[in-house]
Computed example of a mutant assay.
Amino acid sequence: MSPAPAIKVVLADDEHLVRSGFKVLLDLEDDISVVGEATTGVEACDLARTARPHVVLMDIRMPTLDGIRATARIAGTPGLEHVKVLILTTYDTDENVFDALQAGASGFLLKDAGPAELLHAIRVIAAGDALLAPRVTRRLIGQFAAQRRLAASAADRLSVLTDREREVLALVGRGMSNDEIGAALFLSPATARTHVGRAMTKLGARDRAQLVVIAFRTGLTTPDE
């Protein structure tokens, strides 16, 4: 049986030492391959098109084009739907993290995260899931979503969903996995995944991270839950 293809990663950070440290760590893993390094957001976008990585580790603060705008450009480029962006940030109170999730990032990680946490994040995002469990994600989304309600009412935004899909979306907003949602609603994990997929399609969400944003911004999930 042939081994699974390696997860291709692009490192986007203007600090050479940061990129070097990540590369040394990732090169030790049999299932991960660094296929390019970028020092600006523009270079990151170019590499996303040419190297076709599975994951881009994207620093927020970069010259020429910052990580948020670079993320939006990648997410909005036809043919790059499979390229997932993992935002790297130094501060867990960085409001830009919320903007990054809106722009199309699949999650974020603090730069001081341990090696195991970084490797886990890359594998989770490469598998097509969103990284919803870092220690600051829920607080950040709740904090900033409360300040940025959609102009349309929650009823208007969520009217395309069935009652069951609303229930599932609320639980996604609380950071639950498909297994946890299934247990809470007495559904199989496969059925829960189907409802999540349908909600994602109807709401035009790129991935689960954007579903979390929608759940908070429409008030379906609140920070104190």
Rank of each mutant, 00 (worst) to 15 (best):
A192W: 00
A12C: 04
R148S: 11
A145L: 06
E37R: 10
T221R: 13
L158N: 04
A72E: 04
M176S: 05
T93K: 15
D179C: 09
G219D: 07
F108C: 06
S33V: 13
G182P: 00
F22H: 08
Q210H: 11
F186N: 07
T218W: 11
A4G: 03
H120R: 15
T201L: 09
A133T: 15
C45T: 12
R49M: 14
T40W: 14
T71S: 00
R61P: 08
A183I: 12
F144V: 13
G76W: 09
D94C: 14
L88K: 02
V124R: 14
E29R: 11
R164N: 06
F98D: 03
G36H: 08
V160R: 09
K84W: 04
I7E: 03
A100I: 04
F98E: 03
V42P: 01
G67W: 01
A209P: 15
L26W: 04
E165V: 10
N178L: 07
A38G: 05
K202F: 13
R193W: 07
E15M: 14
A215K: 01
P134S: 09
H16M: 11
L118R: 09
A199I: 05
T90V: 13
K23T: 13
S177H: 03
G175F: 04
T194E: 08
Q102V: 10
I7Y: 04
G173T: 06
R157W: 07
A154V: 14
M176I: 00
L80P: 02
T71F: 00
R198K: 10
P3L: 12
A116K: 15
L25T: 07
A133W: 10
P78Y: 09
R164I: 12
V18N: 00
A183T: 02
A199V: 08
D179Y: 15
R123F: 09
L86M: 05
F216G: 12
A190M: 07
E167V: 10
H82F: 13
K202V: 06
P189S: 08
F186Q: 03
D27G: 05
D46P: 03
L169Q: 01
V56D: 04
T221A: 14
A70Y: 00
D66W: 12
A190Q: 00
G41F: 03
R208A: 07
V196G: 01
L185C: 05
A215G: 06
A51M: 07
V24R: 09
T71V: 05
V136C: 03
V34T: 02
L57I: 08
